[in-house]
Design a protein around this nucleic acid. Structure first.
Lengths: 342, 342
DNA sequence: GTTAGCACTCTAAGGACGAGAGTGCTAACG
DNA sequence: CGTTAGCACTCTCGTCCTTAGAGTGCTAAC
């Protein structure tokens, strides 16, 4: 257990290091924060904190830097979350004001807003249910035997697929077929479609096979996710070396973030903070992410539809700000989602 | 006009500098390429080439580096385009083999394949016609008064928009309305829809207003584009300094590449190579792009539907490889597109 | 016109050096 | 006994110097 003074010192070291990004020494702490102990005392305490594993030394004669454990203790015990200032809240809300452009755009926007608000990289996964249901399908004739299947799932997610039909059929035929399939299967989950076991014609078979394969991919596959704001992270001094920067870029490709950061399985109730190699799931993700922290939250409601959101930045991150931002953003997205779902 | 020997030297300097990324001196040229003139002679020629503006000196006593003008002369006059090796061709074609996931995915894939093949960043814009035509629209009931408009344009481009209807209507009402609007307007361009001047009900008005605004945005707005492979470029030594890297990342955001690189207006017939601040349209784009080159091509056929593709990399780029890659890729995309359009 | 020779220039890498910041230890203090 | 002043020690960082190496430009000879 830490004494009050030790706590105070640890807190200040974290605070100062997060702001200034350079190791913090006993004098600085003493002067800047009007500590009523002498530098020598602080040094002694720091040495103790180091023995306990909360601080380190980059080299013999430099100031102290928090360890992973130090950050963790700070976040769990010492930190006071800042309230998100009112204007900030308004700015966030405001950006969602005029958007009515479908789910994908919505997720993009959410990631971008979160990244900006948190000043770090942000990931937002699209909302989804446990098993998706087909809401509506449409067939559009593109070219002789080529048709476009447009499949609307619950939550307004839209998937498309090209179909090569056995025989060429006009738009009217296709519309009629779509109508029939909609009447039969609208509102069904994958299992229910299979259970119905309705006899289908050749063309209908092709369509429903495609539908099934899309729905299976959505059910089993990785979430659709949008990523934004890596630039903010790369601006930080820990990524000044270009090889590190490349490492991060390689890791955080929009196409595979969710593979590396399986947000849904990382998220617990409320907001979860993962510091460095904290989490076994992330430990394999390599060097780069071990120098980073991730703050994960969820939005929506478990029964109906839900998604996850996360802020990712260097371990030296302004947690007291980033955590409430994720919290607030989760609320906003939940609210918006409830206006979106059935 | 350059003498044969001068041409030879310029060619070798470009070649060597592109490969090794460090200024090339007279001795190296002499040894490595078994020149049958002495270093001194080469030095004299180099000095002449420098006077004529084809080469420069980073500092008094270093080897020579091509200037923009030097690269341009090389590309226009000296370069022999390499034939893309057959396996490479197959690799490219192969990657398009199994894709049937709609236009957006197609464009993404194209950008990714091009980036990989050229070893540089790549941009591909979605195919489009001069004015888009609506092919089909669909209305899906999401939530009381909220409906999702799914609009399929020609070339299979799908746009979505949420609609807030005046009064709540069931899926049946919506489908009926969609049917009517399809019968009226399917195949029409924006102007033709306006010209028809059909009297519409309140709900129909809302839908068609949304349709018109989407189509206007597509007609007038920037092309949809996909970007990939910036990492390849950042790996190059010219971007080792992290501020430069950040500059490039800022410039080449997927959301605004086309703003900076208006591919369609840059492209001429065939393949266009823009070296450095060559092109007045790019000159304003700032420092970063002035150190880069862009190779632009088009695909599709002007009357029907066409798009643009580009490779972007440092000015020190392997043109003899990148140019044929763009050329070949343009052919492949054209072929694929013709199977896609009406 | 070409080339050998040479003085000159500039970079890159390594070593020396002092200033500055910080530590750890010891001994004195309240 | 906890706290603190004092001090020697360590390590970084920027600067300066030096040296090796690569390359140039010029001149004079071939």
């Amino acid at each position: 257990m830490l004494t009050d003074r030790q706590s105070r010192i640890l807190e200040l070291v974290v605070h100062e290091y997060v702001e200034a990004a350079s190791p913090v020494g006993s004098q600085l702490l003493c002067r800047k924060y009007r500590f009523n102990s002498s530098p020598a005392t602080i040094r002694n305490e720091m040495a103790d904190l180091e023995d306990m594993g909360y601080l380190t030394h980059p080299h013999t004669s430099s100031g102290r830097v928090p360890t992973e454990q130090g950050y963790r203790y700070y976040v769990e015990t010492l930190m006071r979350e800042e309230q998100l200032p009112w204007e900030e809240q308004q700015t966030i809300r405001h950006q969602f004001h005029q958007v009515e452009r479908g789910q994908e755009a919505w997720v993009h926007l959410a990631a971008s807003v979160l990244a900006q608000a948190a000043g770090n990289a942000a990931v937002v996964t699209a909302p989804r249910t446990d098993v998706c249901r087909m809401k509506h399908l449409e067939l559009v004739n593109l070219h002789e035997r080529t048709a476009l299947l447009v499949l609307v799932l619950d939550q307004g997610r839209v998937e498309q697929q090209l179909l090569l039909m056995d025989e060429s059929s006009g738009q009217d035929d296709l519309s009629q077929m779509a109508g029939k399939l909609n009447r039969l299967f609208a509102g069904c989950a994958l299992a229910e479609i299979a259970a119905k076991d309705v006899p289908l014609g050749d063309g209908e078979r092709v369509v429903m096979d495609a539908v099934a394969s899309i729905m299976r991919a959505v059910d089993e596959g990785f979430d659709e996710a949008s990523l934004d704001g890596i630039r903010e992270v790369l601006r930080q001094p820990e990524f000044a070396a270009s090889d590190r920067a490349l490492g991060l870029l390689e890791l955080l490709d929009e196409r595979n973030v969710v593979r590396v950061l399986p947000l849904r399985s990382l998220a617990r109730d409320g907001v979860t903070v993962i510091i460095g190699a904290d989490n076994p799931r992330l430990a394999e993700a390599g060097e780069t992410i071990r120098a980073c922290s991730v703050i994960v939250g969820t939005y929506g409601s478990p029964g109906v539809a839900s998604g996850a959101l996360a802020v990712l930045g260097p371990m030296r991150m302004r947690y007291s700000r980033a955590i409430p931002t994720v919290r607030y953003m989760a609320d906003v997205l939940s609210e918006l989602l409830s206006g979106y779902s059935e």
